[in-house]
Design a protein around this nucleic acid. Sequence first.
RNA 1: GGGCGAUUAGCUCAGUUGGUAGAGCAGCGCUUUUACACAGCGAAGGUCGGGGGUUCGAAUCCCUCAUCGCCCACCA
Length: 714
Amino acid sequence: MTDIPEKLTKPYDPASTEARIYKLWEDSGFFNPDNLPERHKEPFTIIMPPPNANGRLHAGHGLTIALEDIMTRYQRMQGKKALWVPGADHAGFETQVVYEKKLEKEGRSRFKMDRQELYNEIMAFTLDSKQHMEADVKALGASCDWSREKFTLDPSVVAEVQETFRKLYRDGLVYRGYRTVNWCTKHQTSLSDVETETAEKSDKLYYIKYGPFTVATVRPETIFGDVAVAVNPNDARYKSFIGQTIEVQHPEGKLSLVVIGDEEVDMEFGTGALKITPAHDHNDFRMSERHNLPRVEVIDQFGKLSEGTGKYEGMKIAEARTKVVEDLQALGLIEKIEDYTHAVPTCYKCATTIEPRVMPQWFVKMAPLAKMAADAVREGKVKFIPDNFEKIFLYWMDNTMDWNISRQIVWGIKIPALVCTGCNNGALDTDHKAGDACPSCGAPLVAESDTFDTWFSSGQWPLLALGYPEKRDLSFYPTDVMETGRDLIFKWIPRMVIFGLYLAKEVPFRTVYLHGMVNDKHGKKMSKSKGNVVSPIELTDKYGADALRIGLVIGNTPGNDIALAEDKIKGYKHFCNKMWNGARFTLSNIGDTTLDTPRPTLTERDEEILRELNVAIESITNHYENFRFHLAGEELYHYFWNTFADTIIEEMKPRLAGDDTASKDAAQWVLLQILAANIKMLHPFIPFVTEELWSLLPKKDSSLLIIEPWPKPF
RNA sequence: GGGCGAUUAGCUCAGUUGGUAGAGCAGCGCUUUUACACAGCGAAGGUCGGGGGUUCGAAUCCCUCAUCGCCCACCA
């Protein structure tokens, strides 16, 4: 028996190891590619999706960190100049919602606060949350370059985001539009199409006598805003009415409405005649554009009936609907009422039904940009894993609508513009100043108070994170991999491709790796209300970051959801301990053999064992190269446990205890080499325990495992 | 109304280019043998959702049906 280090005599203890090892890595400077040894030349880059700086990491982040760190560590060991840039997202609307909930609990409201005061409070909250978030990322073992960390509200980032807006404006790709937007009456802001969800809703479909027609609607309370009635020009029943003016009665009087013909009207639905309320319906708004119709607002920003609705003024929508229907019934104007289930857009944060409102806002003209992105993908400049996500991406790019980037919230990057108090035009802050006369109508301009949609800044993230445009790190651009949740395939990925192409004339990444959602152990979505949320940090505290990482990755194929069971993580803690004990056995039986000991004469069986190891190395390396980390992990797991520990070690025991010196030397050398190769290949998955074991292996150099070259076949 | 994914051992899931199925956890029996009981050895457990087809051969390719889930959608 050889003497072994004291710590190996006890079971592996992640709690007393991980923080110490992480500090070793940080102190080494190797997270920063500039500090890597000379031989690391070719860059390999991943930009971390910046976690929201408004809370702790959740299980999905755990998977992201695990996968990205696996890639980064693997490539670093392959001799790449590996760079993984961490970041933090101010997460505009998301964070403001989080903070509003906090205010609510304290009995306060953002609407009673001074804008600057609110901003300062959220900033303090965010900076505090950011520290917790970063500590969580470190606890998971992320080998990212903290010296390059960026926050989406860093002054340089803000300046660049604003500059992008100006560039888009000058290029005619951003414009001030006056049209329906998705308005959340609770949060008092407009939202983009990806910030709404559709919810099934049971409503009534009211058939209202409407001049010579009967129209079917779920929103009788908007009747005061009706400006026309539309029929399909091919509808034999109604086409003779087109162009005529009809009289429509309602509880507050009469409307004179024009009858328009529009192909978009579905002859089959309802009665085939449609009341047109351009101010409160996207569809009707577009019709009003085509037919040059006025827009009469009858619902205000709080979801209450507004001026001009007579006795209904001030009522909430639901109440007004009931009253209007009662009154219409009293007038004999309701023909029938049917039950009706349909999908309505809701605010993705509070589930409030979205109220379409016509407002002046800033829009990005998507068609040309989306085409550019779709072309690049079709040309194969971006590869998707799994590849079926390419179809989803392309579908999205082929069906874009203009992107509303105005948010009526304080928490975010200010839109660098002026808006006219008279007409609805806007101007760049570099061309005009507040108080100037509007170039269009002469009315005074005022500073825009709206902020950008968060995705406007995060869409530029790969460039911003690399210090665009001073070009500090643009040698790392385009990056190699963008790894993120599959739910971001349409929210985030397209915007990054678009901005990358628009600003830098090059796609931001070569490969998009999408992981599935991390669900609870029964495969159900985690949510606070269900109480099934599993914290990655709690699991790390309990079983070690290594166990969590490898447990999250093995058994999970790209794009598919994963069920996170605590027992599984526990199982991989056992694996870490198994490694620990395998090392303990090896180190206590190798005599004075070290990693520097030259290859002795081996037995035929030894040669066979090494040939098998070579096959494993090749296969595992291949899995790493092809993003099949779940298979790399599984094969490593089984090689170490079943082949090395259960078979090879058991087989070597008699030789180690025997008197044949040559055979013993050979056995010692083989065991140590296999152990070292396994430690290296497992390092990306379970960096802490492997680094710790590496430090205990007998060898001349005391360099860190993190920069050890990847094993080559024997 | 579209699109996508899933359907494999009790549970959660793997199975890279087709060659008579694997893991983890749970469970069963035995073993405290000086690396490890966070272990070892052994046994058990599946007609790979149904039905067709291609093939010498299919969980794996094609068609179809069913069930579940997710995403998208401006028929009021």
